[in-house]
Design a protein around this nucleic acid. Structure first.
Lengths: 243, 243
DNA sequence: CGTGGGGTTGACAACCTTCAATAACTGTGG
DNA sequence: CCACAGTTATTGAAGGTTGTCAACCCCACG
């Protein structure tokens, strides 16, 4: 695992709680098995037993559920630095699928390895537990977003969130970051049709809120964006970052 | 804590994994501090530090988030036998509120007590962890429900879920159970207006799917209900119960 | 007997979806 | 270097599901 990628991970975890060299070492050692995954590949399938814990080192992935008629709801983004599926480790079968949105490199821990790591390093266990709690919190906020906000507010809210999450691991440059999603994928995330996502993004571009273009997100007016979204970063538990 | 109430809790946890007498005893002892809460009282508030873990012994409660304009999204139901907020134990502040929907009796564990319990009884820790993972799974399914399904499917899906969850702790009688929610509360849950909830329930009554009336839910045609909902109980991880 | 909360119903409006057509872009092979 | 195919983005028009507003009923409760 190269140092920059490990940096995203550590930076994120240490946002919660300091780690000593031994803990850092143990975590990195456990995550030493890397795997590259193609873009748009489903690498964890609903109804199959969980295959362990993994960390996203590079690239974007998502959790999603399919409906019988082919509709899809994306229920979470997995960004660089995210550690995934500690919670599902004990479940018999996955209740959702996970797929890449771009090429991804991930580090894997077999279930037994993960359990051993948690047993031997209580503070590491706490931090990972915390990271899971934050993901839960994000899921709840997404439900509010989809349930209560208009297309404009909803889109603005998601863009605020993604930007802050990327910023917290050092993946933004000024007011810009990558966001390599098609409008159809944004639609599956926001529970909007791709057409309406397009209209909404066009409107945001015209009104100088954001420019999302060729996989690159630029916040033209951060404050106004947060304002139309009604964005309150509290739920990200970032301990510091404001909008 | 009376035995029937403890029964709901144990029945639910043992659905995941057997417990020995010592574990059962330790859990019940830790949960010995009972508290009665009035109907429609907000007993855990957003932005305040978590006050420990609690178990719902009797009555209905919900997690929710408020928007600046007063709209509300209920993001989860807490039913008898549910153990709550292990996940948030480590967070600095709550990212949502919890309120009762009926009078509730709950058992409380102070944070330190909860941590001690988990440390001393690994298998108990696993079961509680599992219960948390199931709650996460339910949250994701709710997001799918709100995002992708029509009002009719959405309502049917929720009713299927509540019925099964109550059935799993022995709180149903034949095809009926209590469901003491106003239509406005159902609306906040399903992200529908109270008026449209009413229309939908009227429709379901006319077509002999369910009768929801005076706080009592009766499934008139369980199979048809599951069918219109596109309900697949897999996400509840009940290990047995089907619809 | 009045009051207030919840349920029920109708009319109308709004937001968003769907369908359809076109334009821009990406990668591939000749 | 260009032609081509496939995907993604953009825009218009029409229609549908759901929200809002308003009225009315019913019932429990004081």
């Amino acid at each position: 695992m190269n140092l920059e990628q490990a940096g995203h991970l550590l930076r994120r975890l240490e946002g919660f709680c300091g780690l000593d060299d031994e803990e850092r070492g143990a975590l990195l050692a456990a995550l030493s098995m890397e795997r590259r995954i193609d873009s748009h590949a489903c690498f964890i399938e609903e109804r199959r037993p969980p295959e362990g814990v993994f960390a996203i080192l590079e690239g974007f992935a998502c959790r999603y559920k399919l409906l019988p008629d082919g509709r899809r709801q994306i229920v979470g983004f997995l960004l660089p630095g995210d550690i995934c599926d500690l919670g599902t480790l004990l479940l018999r079968r996955m209740d959702h699928s996970i797929a890449t949105l771009t090429p991804v490199t991930a580090a894997w821990l077999a279930p037994v390895t993960a359990m051993a790591l948690l047993d031997r390093h209580p503070r590491l266990a706490r931090v990972l537990w915390l990271a899971g709690a934050v993901e839960e919190s994000i899921t709840r906020e997404w439900m509010v977003n989809i349930g209560q906000r208009t297309a404009l507010q909803r889109t603005a809210h998601l863009l605020c969130e993604v930007f802050l999450r990327l910023e917290s691991v050092g993946l933004t440059h000024g007011n810009a970051c990558v966001l390599p999603l098609t409008q159809a994928e944004l639609g599956d995330t926001l529970a909007l049709s791709a057409v309406h996502v397009n209209r909404t993004l066009m409107y945001m571009r015209r009104t100088n809120l954001v420019d999302l273009h060729a996989g690159r997100l630029q916040l033209l007016d951060r404050h106004a964006l947060a304002s139309v979204a009604g964005f309150d970063p509290c739920y990200l538990h970032l301990c510091g970052g404001a909008m």
